[in-house]
């Protein structure tokens, strides 16, 4: 009984932190379940995928109604993220858990460094407007492709579609292997490689996460990799936590929280490395 409540409380904490720091739940839930509750890595990934779907579905509708997410671009890249997730979901059952834990430790370290850099940036330049990004992108683009036109948004036209497809395939594999949304790959890919404005890239990535995670969650579910007793309380906690976090976001000094969180990520990365080393 107590364990069920603790799982819900842990999920709640992951939802609040994830929402405040703009992270998907997976980067928090997998360590919570493996290090905190002793769940096997593969089962933790299965539960995490469910939680990732919950947070993505809850936020994606809002992004669409506000016209921030690009549904057409999302549907194009989803073909590749879902394919990657299917492959990753199958490969995950063939790889040793120690190797997966090692890969997760690398992801944690990368996320911690990214957050630290973001926090240390003294005065970030003003965000480019969609018009500016569109103009810069247009200058670097090959001749117009009708598909690129079809998935274009206000003031921008996504370029380098082949690179985008390849990167999306990789993001899907990472999502399925490690139980994360893959936003850490997809957002830079769309923004820096394809020339999509950052806000649109973030919202579109969120939209795609649900389908990507669903593709691998189906494999985990049908192969007995999702424990409903653990997934239920954790997912409910994450959902409530994400709602609370979104309401707290404007009242909390996020920079301090980010530094604290970097420390937690670094410690967790060490624990995951130890687990990987047996």
């Amino acid at each position: 009984m107590i364990v069920g409540l603790l799982l819900a409380a842990g999920g709640f904490g992951a939802g609040v932190f994830g929402s405040l720091l703009g992270l998907g739940g997976g980067i928090l839930i997998v360590p919570l379940l493996t290090v905190g509750f002793g769940v096997s890595f593969r089962e933790a990934v299965g539960v995490s995928l469910v939680c990732v779907i919950v947070t993505s579905s809850a936020a994606a509708g809002v992004y669409l109604e506000r016209h921030l997410a690009n549904l057409r671009l999302g549907m194009l890249l989803e073909v590749f993220t879902a394919t990657g997730a299917l492959v990753g979901g199958l490969v995950a059952f063939a790889l040793p858990e120690q190797l997966l834990a090692g890969l997760f430790a690398i992801l944690l370290a990368y996320t911690a460094i990214s957050m630290l850099r973001r926090g240390r940036a003294p005065a970030s330049p003003p965000p480019a407007t969609t018009d500016e990004l569109g103009a810069a992108d247009a200058g670097a683009q090959p001749p117009t492709s009708s598909l690129a036109d079809e998935i274009a948004g206000p003031g921008y036209r996504p370029g380098r579609l082949v690179a985008g497809a390849g990167g999306s395939l990789g993001a899907g594999v990472v999502s399925a292997l490690l139980g994360v949304g893959g936003g850490i790959v997809k957002v830079p890919l769309m923004h820096l490689v394809m020339g999509v404005p950052l806000k649109v890239a973030t919202a579109t990535s969120n939209l795609m996460i649900g389908v990507t995670a669903a593709a691998s969650a189906i494999v985990y579910l049908l192969r007995g990799g999702i424990d409903p007793y653990v997934a239920g309380p954790t997912a409910v906690g994450v959902f409530v936590g994400a709602m609370v976090g979104s309401r707290l976001a404007s009242r909390i000094h996020v920079d301090l929280l980010r530094l604290l969180f970097v420390g937690v990520l670094a410690l967790t990365a060490v624990q995951m490395t130890l687990r990987a080393l047996g």
Partner: peptide, 30 residues
């Protein structure tokens, strides 16, 4: 947006009921 909102709420409501029944039955998840 409506589908996503309804699906999420229905899924979470079912998981919440299941979790409460789990606690009420004294089942330890782990």
């Amino acid at each position: 947006a409506r589908i996503l909102a309804l699906g999420t709420r229905l899924g979470i409501a079912l998981l919440a009921v299941g979790s409460l029944l789990l606690v009420a039955a004294g089942i330890s998840p782990l």
